[in-house]
Amino acid sequence: MHLVVIAWLYVALMMAVAEATNTNGTVLGAVFTFLLYGLGPVALVVYLMGAPGRRKAIRAREAAEREDAMRAAAAPSIAPDAGSETAADAIPPVREKT
Rank of each mutant, 00 (worst) to 15 (best):
T86I: 15
M49D: 14
V17H: 01
R71H: 04
T23Q: 13
D89R: 15
T33K: 04
V27E: 03
V94S: 13
A75W: 03
D68H: 08
A73F: 09
A73Q: 07
V42F: 04
A12Y: 00
V46K: 02
P92Q: 09
F32V: 09
R61D: 10
L44F: 11
A57V: 08
R71S: 10
V17R: 08
L9A: 00
Y47C: 10
S77D: 13
L36I: 10
T23C: 06
E65N: 02
G29Q: 07
T98L: 12
A16E: 00
G40R: 02
D81A: 08
P76Y: 01
L13I: 09
Y10A: 13
L28N: 14
A72G: 01
W8V: 07
A64I: 03
T86V: 14
I6N: 10
L3W: 15
A79C: 07
I58N: 11
A90E: 01
M14L: 12
I6L: 04
N22P: 01
V5T: 11
R54L: 15
D68W: 09
I91L: 10
L28Q: 13
K97H: 13
D81W: 01
V45C: 10
A87Q: 12
W8K: 10
V5L: 02
A7Y: 08
A75Q: 04
M70E: 14
A82Q: 04
G25H: 05
L3M: 09
A87P: 04
A63V: 00
A73R: 09
I91Y: 13
A73S: 02
G29V: 03
R59H: 03
P52A: 04
V5Q: 13
T33G: 03
A74I: 03
I6K: 14
P80Y: 10
E96Y: 05
A88R: 15
V17Q: 03
R61K: 12
A12S: 08
I58D: 08
M1V: 13
L9E: 01
V31N: 01
V31A: 05
I91R: 13
S77T: 06
M15G: 04
I91M: 09
A57K: 07
A12D: 00
A51Q: 15
A72F: 00
M1Q: 15
A82E: 04
Y10I: 15
E67H: 06
I91D: 03
A74P: 02
G83E: 02
E67P: 00
D68Y: 10
A73D: 09
A20S: 10
R66Q: 13
A30K: 00
T26D: 00
V4Q: 14
D81M: 03
